[in-house]
Amino acid sequence: MRMPSKRVRKGKTHWVGQVSRRNFRREKLFKTKTEATQWESEVKTLLRGSIPEEDIKRLLDEGLSPKAVSDVWEREQTPTVSLHEWATAYLDHVRENVSAKTYKDKLRILRRFLNWHGKPGQPVQGLSTATAHRFLMSYARSKSHNTANVYRTHLGAAWNWAMKYQMCPAPNPFQVVDKFSHEKSHHYMPPMEDFLKVVDLSEGQDKALLWTYYYTGARRKELFNLIWEDIDLERGRLRLYTRKRRGGLKEADWVGMTEALIGVLREQHERTGRSEWVFLNRYGKPFRSLSKFLGRLCEEAGVKPFGFHGIRALTATSLARENTPMVVIQQHLRHRSLQVTEDYIRGVPTTKPYLDVLDGGLSKRTKAA
């Protein structure tokens, strides 16, 4: 067995580690015989493995230690996904599962990230948390903390999806970044008297639309897309579809109707005749936008302008003021999280009316004593 040999150059002694076999010959200088011997042993172990000799030569010539050669070679054999490929694959996936608006938002955010990064061909493994933080921080400073948090949510969702399909490594660099502090803003909720003033000024379908918003607490597009097949007047319920759930899948929920709303929709059904849609624009098609509708009515009524989401908050608050249990309000608004429901309720103590129940335990114990 060949052992390391001494070599003296310019008055300095080195130990030469050498490995030779057929078409393979490599050597390296070391300060000690022990280091040279260990290097020879590790190279011989590599040659007995499955890594091609040409790759071992190449990686050793790049200055890697024999132990590092195996790890680097294995990584080279693993197909890498570029940042551009990751973004494209995610957008292709969500295109069929989210609304057109949500898709445009995700497309815009991913494009801005790739343009900012400047190297869309870089493997996803090279994206660090520090880089993700710098990108989000740039928008926190130039736009707002809330904008940065929105970007963090969308980019984090894209990375989580890719982790599920083993395209991107853990941990998620965007979600490791802490959320940016910001003050939560609420949609303006009109007082009940202002809402009634606006309703009194409206007529026909406009009035029916406003009352349907109030009684259902629906989202704007949910009513725009409402069709008569989703209305069950006999059972007093209607079906609303939403994509405002995790994953963006379209889901349906049945919502109960009051007698007043049933009457409103019976009149609306007489107006629309045989139309498929419940609410129609002047061309006989479903509404896409009513941006000026409420603003015009609010101006005529002389009240502070409010939007459709303000009516949704008014519905939740009206129920809460009558001591309706929070879980019932949550079910009516179709929120997955009770915390989201509580955010809709303004100026109403959400737990205090029920704390008297806790007094029962002390009262009973006092009586028992």
Rank of each mutant, 00 (worst) to 15 (best):
E234I: 09
F195L: 09
S318N: 13
G204E: 15
P79C: 10
G284W: 02
P120W: 01
D232R: 05
S65I: 03
R235F: 09
L319I: 06
Q331V: 02
G361M: 14
T131A: 07
Y188E: 14
W39I: 08
L355Q: 12
R334D: 01
K28D: 00
H133N: 11
V340E: 13
E267M: 10
A316S: 07
H145A: 14
R245T: 15
W211Q: 00
Y151N: 04
Y139K: 06
T45H: 09
A301E: 03
K164C: 04
H84W: 07
S5D: 09
L107Y: 12
G361D: 10
W211N: 03
W15K: 07
V278P: 07
K184R: 14
T324F: 10
K184T: 11
G295D: 04
L362V: 13
N115A: 15
G273P: 02
A368M: 11
S138G: 04
R271I: 06
E35C: 10
I311N: 00
Y103M: 00
K164Y: 10
C298I: 09
E300G: 02
I345T: 08
V327Y: 15
L358N: 12
L210K: 03
W254R: 00
S289L: 13
E193P: 03
A132H: 00
D55G: 04
K31Q: 11
N149W: 01
V303E: 08
K364Q: 07
H154W: 05
Y354I: 01
G11R: 14
G302D: 12
R288Q: 14
G361R: 14
G302N: 09
L290Q: 14
K57E: 12
L47M: 13
K101P: 01
G347V: 13
V199F: 09
E270G: 10
N23Y: 06
S70K: 15
E76S: 12
E222K: 05
G361Y: 09
H14K: 14
F174E: 05
L29W: 05
L226K: 04
H14M: 09
R152T: 02
V43W: 08
S20R: 15
E222P: 03
N225L: 08
H332A: 07
